[in-house]
Design a protein around this nucleic acid. Structure first.
Lengths: 199, 199
DNA sequence: CTGAACCCTTAAGATATCTTAAGGGTATTT
DNA sequence: AAATACCCTTAAGATATCTTAAGGGTTCAG
């Protein structure tokens, strides 16, 4: 088996964890997703472009972020193995995006275009549920994050991040985590010191 | 035409704005949604219960919020006419919810149970897309909110709220808006004063 | 109609978080 | 292997936001 097919097996395993797939559905999935390798610091999506793909991460890690007029980055989302990422607004509206998706580590991704996704939706109704569930899960996660943002201190949000994403926490530089939490990296450093001293 | 049917027309108009519906689909929608009237301060969902319905607001306004151990409320979402609200986590997992949905104004809502929604999904595949799109739109909105929360000052977030939800802004008490923005109502008061003086 | 509950504002002092600056460590690129 | 870019930490002073307290206006329920 070549490596391309092997990478797609992770996608198939992921998709069939919610619904079992027929042979025909599997065949279509394999045909419609395109594999790409992204170097560290390579862009999957760049501000000003239209987001033309829904992306599944096979290996590595991506970050999705916005940049403010002063040039500061704000991390909206990390996507590591088995996770989906896309700027849904640009993807469906076909308007230029305001955000970036960039590889933090060398990564392998699988992508489907909007047209092919719509083709899947109309010809294999099951995929409507599959992608509805994918979005619903991401929605629940985002809602928890909003609740944290409006109710918890920076220290609480950091501890929650460690609990919720232990693997990411050990993989990512603290600067990236601080940007995700909405604090400066200097302040995260102080939080870490305080936590360490208290234990 | 009786009032119950009239209320459901708003739902039908809403649903068919994305996809046109067949007579049969319309008939099912009308049959599967139940109408309820909620008094001001009445609960649509209470912490500890399982969220058994997906709710569409016909008139009035609901708020969805969490309460922390100290008793403070944090508004996750407002839902006025033509909007959907539900605790998706509890709705799909059938686990007890940690949150509240409460009427801020006397409201009329239409609700569908999880079982009936699943029935709709399996028998009328179109509704998979409809609800997928509903969630996608809410996802995009939440993502913008997270970006605001991690990148903007309280004053910027307030001005953005006024821009994005002018109707809500004039309808809701400032205490509720402050809770949504993640600030105290005293601080919102100061922000409003500063903005007024600057203009 | 009236008391109770809620809402808005103001202000003073406390706390959380940011900014700037600097130094040393580590990883990446040349 | 050197040079560069990145990363982490510390600390001092600045700013944003919270807490508490108080007073007056408005709405709601009895």
């Amino acid at each position: 088996m070549n490596e391309g097919i092997k990478n797609k097996e992770l996608l198939l395993a992921h998709m069939s964890s919610a619904f079992s797939l027929t042979d025909k559905e599997i065949e279509e999935l394999i045909a419609l997703f395109t594999e790409r390798k992204i170097k560290r610091r390579g862009f999957v999506l760049h501000q000003g472009d239209v987001c033309r793909h829904f992306t599944f991460v096979v290996s590595g890690c991506l970050k999705m972020y916005a940049i403010d007029p002063a040039g500061k980055e704000y991390n909206l989302e990390f996507a590591a193995e088995n996770e989906w990422v896309s700027d849904l607004f640009s993807f469906y509206s076909e308007k230029p995006t305001g955000i970036y998706i960039e590889a933090i580590e060398p990564s392998v991704i699988l992508q489907i275009t909007r047209q092919n996704l719509i083709y899947l939706y109309s010809n294999y109704p099951k995929f409507n549920s599959t992608f509805r569930i994918i979005i619903e899960r991401k929605y629940i996660e985002l809602q928890n994050r909003v609740l944290q943002n409006i109710s918890a201190t920076a220290e609480e949000r950091y501890e929650n991040f460690l609990d919720q994403f232990p693997a990411l926490a050990s993989r990512l530089p603290n600067t990236q985590i601080a940007s995700y939490l909405g604090i400066t990296s200097e302040f995260l450093s102080k939080i870490r010191k305080d936590l360490a001293q208290r234990r």
